[in-house]
Nucleic acid binder design. Structure first.
Lengths: 84, 84
DNA sequence: AAGTTATTTAGATATTTGCCTAAATAACTA
DNA sequence: TAGTTATTTAGGCAAATATCTAAATAACTT
């Protein structure tokens, strides 16, 4: 839960999730959408992956990333407990 | 949205929300539940309040805090868009 | 008015975070 | 095998964050 909230607490990472919602993308394609360096994007992808919000699969020299919405259920559940 | 995720990205603040879910509490009562200083708790309460996740009402020398779950709908909505 | 209690504000410090450039790794291509 | 492309890892720096103690504010009590 800690990792998920950490991952979600960043504009760039939330945007990455929105991009991956539409379609799977490679690390490079994701980076093209931002004005920050590729290593920085790589770092954000790592944080999202640690939180299990995305997963990457290596295909040749590319890594294809896709969103994993299942883990969001944990967030929903936690938030719902607050709503009593 | 930014402020909400920031507010939720901290163990202490999430615990404060869980405490306030059960009942309204004063700043001092909230602080009793943690081993960190009162000024630190006061700071966390400020962040939660800025995110509109809680609200405080002064009653004499006490400030009674209560949770505001309405704002959580924004989070739900955002998370749902990710689920397609 | 003086003292006590509840809470916040201010200022300092250590840790974490996000970004960068440079270097490393891995896979493709000629 | 040498060169190119895709991506990550490493190292460093500045800004943000969480914490603390001390001081300030506000309300109650005697």
């Amino acid at each position: 839960m800690k990792d998920i909230f950490k991952a979600l607490n960043d504009d760039t990472r939330r945007e990455i999730l929105e991009l991956l919602k539409k379609e799977d993308l490679t690390a490079g394609e994701i980076a093209e959408n931002f004005s920050i360096s590729k290593p920085s994007i790589s770092h954000h992808l790592d944080i999202l992956q640690r939180a299990d919000l995305i997963s990457g699969e290596k295909k040749g020299q590319f890594i294809h990333y896709s969103i994993n919405t299942t883990i969001l259920n944990d967030v929903f559940t936690w938030l719902l407990t607050l709503k009593k």
